[in-house]
Computed example of a mutant assay.
Amino acid sequence: MRTQSDPKPFISIQFKRRMRAITSSLIVATGLMAAKFYSYHLTHSSAVLSDALESIINVVAAAFAMVSIWMAAQPPDPEHPYGHGKIEYFSAGFEGALIILAAIGIFKTGIDQLMFPHPLANLNAGLLVLVAASAANLGLGIILIRIGNRVQSLTLVADGKHVLTDVYTSGGVVAGLILVQWTGWMWLDGSIACLVGVNILLTGTRLVGQSFSALMDASDPMLLDRITQLIITHRHPHWIDIHQLRAWRSGNFVHIDLHLVLPRQYQIDDAHADAKVLEQMLIDHFDGNAGVLVHIDPCQEDDCPVCRKYRCEQRKKPFNNTRAWDRESLTANKSDGLASPPEKTAPDTGEKGNGDV
C-alpha cells in the first residue's frame, strides 16, 4: 500500500524561500557580470576577462535554476505521478556543464596572454571593482548554500557552490594582478587565468557527477541512516523484521519503500493498521514531503528467533534477540538470502514479556 502526504499548496513556504534565494542570485549575478566586464574594459586583462566570462555562466545558470525550482514545486500529475523534483538534478548537471565550457574558454584566453603578453592599464581601478564584486559574491554564495541545505534543494546548493567558485576565481585574479603590478611580469596574467580555469573545471566536473548520481537514484547512506534510526526508535514489539528498505530523493520529496514482516496469523485489518502507523511516522518525520510504500510479508520459521511475540502458538524456534537492526540489515534483500547478516548482539533491555501480543 502507498501513502503520501496530501498535496501541498503550490505556493509553499519552502517554495517561496527557494524562489527568493534564486531570484537574489540572478539579480546579483547580473550586476556583478556588468561590473567585471567594466573592470576588463579598464584593464584589458586576460585574467579579468576569464572572471567575466564565468559571470555569464552564473547568470545563465541562475536563470535555468529559477525555472527548475518553479517546475519542481508543481504537484504530481497523471503524466508525472512522482512529481517534478528531478528537474533540479538536471539543473545542477546543466550548471556543471556550463562551468566546464567556461573553463575551456578561460584556458584559451589565458594561453593567448601567456604566449603573447601585453601591458595592462588602470590596474588600481580594476582591482577595486573586483574586490567589491568578490565580497558581494561571497555573501551570496554562503546564503545560497545554507538555504539550499535547509530546504533540501540541490539546485540552490549547486548555484551557491558555483558562486563561491566565482569568489575563488576573483580572488586568484586579484592576487595575480597585484603580482603583475609589483613585478611587471605580464605573462603572470595569463598564468593566473589558466590556474583559475583548472579550479573551475574541477568544480564543474564534481557538479556533473553529483547530478548524474542523483538522477540514477544512487544510494544515499545518510538518508538511509536517518530512516533506520527513526524506525529503531519507534519500533513496535510485533514488527518482527524489516528488510529491503529503499529511499531516494526527488528534489525536496523523499520516496521510501520497505518490507515489513508481521505475524502470519494477523488479520488484514491488523496488518493494515501497523503499516499505516509506520507510513505516517515516516511521512511526519519529513514534514509531509514523503511517499511511503510498505510491503507486508508474513513471518516464516526463520523469523522465530527475532520475533517478540513470545506466546505465539506457531513458534518453531525460541526467541534469542541476536539480530540487531541497523542499515545493513534493514536494506538487505531477503530474496537474495541477505536478510540475515552476521549476528550482532542487540542490547538486552530487560523487557522480555512486554511484547506479548
Score class of each variant (00 low, 15 high):
residue 60 V to P: 01
residue 84 H to P: 01
residue 66 M to E: 03
residue 60 V to H: 05
residue 54 E to N: 04
residue 56 I to T: 09
residue 62 A to S: 13
residue 59 V to N: 06
residue 69 I to V: 14
residue 65 A to H: 01
residue 72 A to W: 05
residue 62 A to Q: 08
residue 75 P to Y: 12
residue 57 I to F: 07
residue 57 I to C: 04
residue 54 E to K: 13
residue 64 F to W: 05
residue 75 P to I: 08
residue 67 V to N: 09
residue 85 G to F: 08
residue 61 A to C: 13
residue 64 F to G: 01
residue 76 P to M: 15
residue 67 V to H: 11
residue 55 S to Y: 02
residue 71 M to W: 07
residue 57 I to P: 05
residue 77 D to H: 03
residue 64 F to T: 12
residue 77 D to E: 05
residue 59 V to E: 00
residue 76 P to Q: 15
residue 54 E to F: 06
residue 57 I to W: 04
residue 64 F to D: 05
residue 62 A to M: 00
residue 72 A to K: 03
residue 58 N to K: 01
residue 88 E to G: 07
residue 83 G to V: 10
residue 53 L to V: 09
residue 77 D to M: 01
residue 65 A to C: 14
residue 85 G to A: 12
residue 55 S to G: 13
residue 61 A to G: 05
residue 60 V to S: 01
residue 88 E to L: 02
residue 53 L to A: 11
residue 73 A to W: 08
residue 60 V to I: 15
residue 60 V to R: 15
residue 76 P to S: 15
residue 60 V to Q: 02
residue 62 A to W: 01
residue 75 P to G: 13
residue 67 V to F: 15
residue 69 I to P: 00
residue 75 P to S: 14
residue 65 A to M: 05
residue 77 D to L: 08
residue 61 A to M: 06
residue 72 A to N: 12
residue 59 V to D: 00
residue 73 A to G: 04
residue 67 V to A: 15
residue 82 Y to D: 03
residue 71 M to L: 15
residue 88 E to R: 02
residue 75 P to D: 14
residue 80 H to N: 02
residue 62 A to D: 07
residue 53 L to P: 00
residue 56 I to S: 14
residue 71 M to A: 09
residue 65 A to Y: 00
residue 57 I to M: 12
residue 78 P to M: 10
residue 61 A to K: 00
residue 70 W to E: 05
residue 84 H to L: 03
residue 85 G to L: 13
residue 81 P to W: 08
residue 71 M to D: 06
residue 65 A to P: 07
residue 79 E to M: 13
residue 66 M to P: 06
residue 73 A to R: 06
residue 71 M to Q: 14
residue 74 Q to V: 11
residue 60 V to L: 09
residue 71 M to C: 06
residue 68 S to D: 07
residue 77 D to N: 13
residue 77 D to Y: 10
residue 59 V to H: 06
residue 74 Q to Y: 05
residue 66 M to N: 03
residue 70 W to L: 09
residue 71 M to S: 10
residue 87 I to V: 13
residue 65 A to I: 09
residue 76 P to G: 11
residue 86 K to G: 11
residue 53 L to D: 00
residue 72 A to T: 00
residue 57 I to S: 04
residue 53 L to Q: 02
residue 56 I to R: 04
residue 68 S to A: 15
residue 64 F to Y: 15
residue 83 G to P: 05
residue 57 I to G: 04
residue 87 I to L: 07
residue 60 V to E: 12
